[in-house]
Simulated scan of single mutants.
Amino acid sequence: MLSRRLFLKSGALLGCSAAAHPFLSSITFASAPGDNRLVVIILRGAMDGLDVFQPYGDPELAQLRRKLSVGPQNGAHDLDGFFALHPALGDLMPLWKAGELGFVPAVSTPYRDKRSHFDGQDILEAGSGTDMPLRAQRDGWLNRLLQNMPGVESHTAYSVGLDEMRILEGPAATRSWSPATQFRLSPQGQRLLQHVWHDDPLFREAGSQAVQIISDGIEAVNEPGGPTRDARAIAQFAAARLNEETRIASFSISGWDSHAQQEKTLQRPMQRLAAAILTLKEGLGANWGRTTVLAMTEFGRTVRENGGGGTDHGTGGAMLMAGGAIRGGRALGDWPGLRESDLYAGRDLMPLRDIRAYAAWAMHDLFNVQNDILERAVFPDLDMGDNPGILA
């Protein structure tokens, strides 16, 4: 059955590119058989995994980052004696202690060396095995997952931002709406408009979408103000859908581009990420125990801080996992080290595993998707390797 997607677009250019814009956010939903739930959060702007999950136990870190505060002695929350969680994510520590938060410290897509936000996000969301985005798979891996899962039908999906999420692109129809638009009509007014636009395909389609958005109740989402309001509102809306027939949701949190004043720049996106995860947990209630959250970014950042107290575009980064369904309270995978000889191109954290493998194993274990489908159709050219055991 043809899946349906719905996009909402808004925002303006800021930062080094629109792809790193702190206000861009996207969300989509899909139904699927069973009770397990998957939430994919795209962290736009290239999150510095070395700052979020600080490997303070590696003696090289303090030498590479003299201006950036790292480690428990500077307010970070110790996780396991080697890694520490950034202070701005301290609200997530109860999840870590409950085994509902984990991470992978050295992952990346196959994208290498060009370090462009747009290209990196294309590769991440396309799920392609190539680093040539213009020649890469034209649709997104979440869309291909839906196409290859029996019994899946996408549910009314909402995307907020300037650009459609490539992770959703594919043969399914798309819709768009601006969240700044107010559209309030009486039932009689709606019937009148439907009569007026009936013979005009363009207006008929756009008008029908607007009416459906209102009937779906997105305007009913009500969150108090503050810097995390939008993240909480999106998560609240997602949780409400996931408590119904929706089983797969994806949205984005931006603002992770930190070329200068990183300690200040990353405060707000980290607060948004923590708020989104905690709002999901609260909103899902008992269904949190059947939920897996994967937070992924287009690439990591340089291991050395720059002269502006920030970090530049790199390669290896971190993936965050959360949810009651995961086996958390741990770092998955190995640590490559930060010595000069350990780095990629002498400047970046060396990625030890393809981030797509973790997403693939999550979908395998959550929805019983066969390995050959994941390695050929969903993530072309992927070798999934051994199961990392994300789920509890």
Rank of each mutant, 00 (worst) to 15 (best):
M1P: 12
R5N: 12
S10H: 13
G11A: 12
L13Y: 14
L14N: 08
H21G: 08
P22W: 03
I27A: 11
L38F: 10
V40C: 08
P55A: 03
A62K: 15
L68H: 05
V70S: 13
P72F: 13
A76K: 02
W96V: 03
G99Q: 06
G99P: 08
L101E: 08
T109I: 13
E125Q: 12
R138E: 11
G140F: 04
R144H: 12
L145T: 05
R166V: 10
R166A: 13
I167A: 14
G170I: 05
G170F: 02
P171F: 06
R191F: 00
V196F: 14
W197E: 15
L202H: 15
F203W: 15
R204P: 09
E205P: 02
S208I: 02
I214A: 14
D216M: 11
G217R: 03
A220D: 13
R229V: 04
A233D: 07
A240M: 03
R247M: 08
S250L: 10
S254D: 07
T265D: 01
L266K: 07
A275V: 02
A276G: 05
L278D: 03
L280C: 04
K281N: 01
L294E: 02
L294S: 05
E298R: 00
F299N: 00
G300L: 00
G308W: 04
H313R: 02
H313I: 03
G316L: 07
G317A: 04
L320I: 14
G328T: 08
R330C: 12
G337W: 12
G337Q: 10
L338Q: 10
R339N: 09
D342S: 07
I355E: 14
Y358F: 08
